[in-house]
Design a protein around this nucleic acid. Sequence first.
DNA 1: AAAAAAGTCAACCGCGAAAGT
DNA 2: TACTTTCGCGGTTGACTTTTT
Length: 247
Amino acid sequence: MGRSPCCEKAHTNKGAWTKEEDDRLIAYIRAHGEGCWRSLPKAAGLLRCGKSCRLRWINYLRPDLKRGNFTEEEDELIIKLHSLLGNKWSLIAGRLPGRTDNEIKNYWNTHIRRKLLNRGIDPATHRPISEASQDVTTISFSGAKEEKEKISNPNGFIHKEEKETPVQERCPDLNLDLRISPPYHQTTQPEPLKAGGRTLCFICSLGVKNSKDCTCSVGSGAGSSSSGYDFLGLNSGLLDYRSLEMK
DNA sequence: AAAAAAGTCAACCGCGAAAGT
DNA sequence: TACTTTCGCGGTTGACTTTTT
């Protein structure tokens, strides 16, 4: 079987977009809106695959993009959100108007990681590096472990003992590769989060705008991300970690 | 001034989930 | 229910720029 390609690769351009291609894409989306990305290139007269068009539009051409340097407030928000959500860049981007997941991901990898390391904080675990290297080991999740090993052994050398001795994780709080739900059987609808005196469903608590999965009707229209809700309970401490079950 | 190294970021790739049939 | 198609996401690459030697 296998997955069919999203477009005919033989007849598509790759690499950097030209001004003309940008103009065509902008003009088409202005006229017809964002729609079927698969058919868009042909309809717009572009020799690009739909995926490429989507990416170009979302990450670069969208009129509501901010661009420019990140502010200190944005930095701190990204760090906070990353500590809660991990590498869920699209969710993080959803909380930063005008920023894209790709932009935030790049910014994290180039700036914030270093910034946290300079502060002595492990960017993977958001804990002090000294603590992380002493007694915290992520069990059986290679990505997180490799990250830790990189931090504690910057030259890449890994001690055999460290590598082979499983150590119980002391504070397994925010490794979002895990189901961070306690043994918990939900027989009825989970109690929604409350923020600012209003009730939020899980979808809205993550800042997902206009989701069809929204059960509280807050996410649509004027009430969502721009209204100053305390998403994730960052400010109010209302975060219910059971609601952050990721996988 | 030139070469090498490091940093940046747009774009690509492959996968999983959702939607459609 | 099974299969196919499309979309969206996160990881990675590589071209380009900037800084250092």
